[in-house]
Structure formats: structure tokens, C-alpha cells
């Protein structure tokens, strides 16, 4: 049937129902950044850390986004920036999801004192303004992108622990779980086979939205001077270089727009995913 309908519509492309504007728009931007990050060394005329021309050239035909204090091409550096931001965001979200979901699932399923202990840790961690906690952790581990990433995992895991626990609590009282328990399935089997598969959609939606937030916080830490160090072409680090020369507006323009595009895209993508995965929630 689907073949028939698609054939009859061959003259005009019909959007599939899942392809909403936020989902596609956000997805395209993120995908574009990933492709840029993977392929960039092969097609940029300039090097991100070496002299590319005169210092402080405003945007023009040679340098579309101008050059910075060391004569490096701002556009090239901006595009290279994704090679720092995205791996960090993937690492932070990945670790936060794994740690948070494991602890959250245990808390929700086992309950008792273990639940209390885990959730008090969650409460306390969530009592800090994220940026202050990340700053304190990075400051004590020592500045650097790697340590900033560890700090952000510490900031982010409790959100997933809370989410996962709430999901497990709501799913475990459903009838199919009771049926599985009644038929003699072991506790770990019930959790892994019958509860967890139904818990993922809010986690995925949240992780997508948080992707942009992690990129933003990582850039903030670098901007403050706790993350990436020069000459790394990292977005926050680049904006802090632009802040020193702020009447030369083009130095910070590229990295700022880059962060904005990623945060917006991940927001749209998350929104779209939520509508797709859980239509009731919107």
C-alpha cells in the first residue's frame, strides 16, 4: 500500500508524518556540524593555529569572518571549534546518562535505604547553581578541557538519575511487570527486560536538549579560563580573545553564532523528538 501511495505522489514530494520542521531543521544543523568536524582538514585553505594573513583584518573576500590578533582566520578556527565542542558534549552526556540512569534505575527499582542514599546525593548536587559547581570542580582538578568535562559530568548525572528513577517507578507498577514477576522472572531480568525498555524516551529527549547546554557550559568554562587553553580553537576561548579586543567585533562573532546554532538546533531537535516519541507530553 505504501508503495502505491508513494508512486501516486511521485510528481510531488510528500513529507513523511514524522518529519516535522523542528526535527528536520535541528537535525540538519547538527548533522552539518558533524560533517564539518569530520572533513574539515581536507577543504579549508587556512590552518586554525597558524598565521593566515594580516592581523585584525575585518571580514572580506579573503577572510570571510576576518582575522584575529595573531592573524589567524576566524572562520577556519570557528569551524575547527566543533572538533572540541562535540566530542566533549558526547562524552559528558554519555557519561551522565550511563551513571545517572544506572543509579536512578537502582534507586527506583530496589528502593529502601539505597534509594534514600542515592537520591540525597542527587538532591545535594542539584542544589548548586551548575556553573558554580562546575567552576569549583574544575578549579580543584586544575584547568583544562578534560577536567572541565569531568566537572560537567558531575553537574549533569543527577538530572538523569532523577528522570530514570521517576520512569522506573511509573513503569514498575504496570501490569506486564506484575505478570513477569508472577511468572517467576528474576529481579534483574524484570528490570532489564521488562522495565528499562519502556523508560528511554524522556531520557533521549533530555539528552538531545542537554547536548546544546553542555556545549554552552563548556564554552563558558573556557571563556572564564578554566577550560581550553590557547591556541586551541575552542569557541569559548575564542570569544574570550574577542572580549579583549571587543571593538573588533568579528573575532567573537563566528564562535558566538556557532554556539547559538548548536544550542538552538539541539533544542529544536529535542522538541521534535519529544513530539515524535511521546505525543501526549506536548
Amino acid at each position: 500500500m505504501s508503495i502505491l501511495s508513494s508512486r501516486s505522489a511521485s510528481s510531488r514530494f510528500v513529507w513523511p508524518e514524522w518529519a516535522t520542521l523542528p526535527l528536520v531543521g535541528g537535525g540538519v544543523v547538527i548533522l552539518a556540524w558533524i560533517i564539518i568536524g569530520l572533513t574539515i582538514p581536507w577543504w579549508t585553505p587556512y590552518d586554525p593555529t597558524n598565521l593566515a594573513g594580516m592581523r585584525f583584518q575585518p571580514p572580506g573576500a579573503e577572510h570571510w569572518l576576518g582575522t584575529d590578533a595573531l592573524g589567524r582566520d576566524v572562520l577556519t578556527r570557528t569551524l575547527y571549534g566543533v572538533r572540541h565542542s562535540f566530542p566533549i558534549a558526547v562524552f559528558v552526556i554519555g557519561c551522565a546518562v550511563v551513571i545517572g540512569c544506572t543509579l536512578g534505575a537502582i534507586a527506583g527499582y530496589v528502593g529502601g535505604w539505597l534509594d534514600s542514599v542515592i537520591m540525597r546525593f542527587v538532591d545535594i548536587t542539584l542544589s548548586f547553581p551548575p556553573i558554580l559547581l562546575a567552576m569549583a570542580v574544575t578549579a580543584s582538578l586544575g584547568p583544562g578541557l578534560g577536567n572541565a568535562a569531568i566537572a560537567m559530568v558531575i553537574v549533569w548525572w543527577p538530572i538523569y538519575a532523577r528522570l530514570m528513577r521517576a520512569q522506573v517507578l511509573s513503569v514498575r507498577s504496570r501490569e506486564h511487570v506484575e505478570a513477569a514477576v508472577a511468572s517467576g522472572a528474576s529481579r534483574s531480568r524484570v528490570l532489564i527486560k521488562h522495565i528499562l525498555p519502556l523508560c528511554w524516551s524522556p531520557i533521549i529527549v533530555n539528552a538531545t536538549m542537554d547536548f546544546g547546554q553542555v556545549v554552552l557550559l563548556a564554552a563558558s568554562l573556557s571563556f572564564i579560563g578554566l577550560g581550553a587553553v590557547p591556541p586551541t580553537p575552542e569557541w569559548g576561548q575564542m570569544i574570550s580573545e574577542g572580549a579583549i579586543q571587543f571593538y573588533r567585533w568579528w573575532i567573537a562573532l563566528g564562535p558566538g553564532l556557532a554556539i547559538l546554532s548548536v544550542v538552538l538546533a539541539s533544542n529544536f531537535l529535542g522538541d521534535g523528538l519529544r513530539d515524535y516519541l511521546d505525543p501526549r507530553a506536548s
Partner: peptide, 8 residues
């Protein structure tokens, strides 16, 4: 909400 305040 999305733009970094240190940039805007």
C-alpha cells in the same frame, strides 16, 4: 535563552 551571555 540559547545565546551565550558572554557573547551577547
Amino acid at each position: 535563552a540559547s545565546a551565550p551571555v558572554f557573547w551577547s
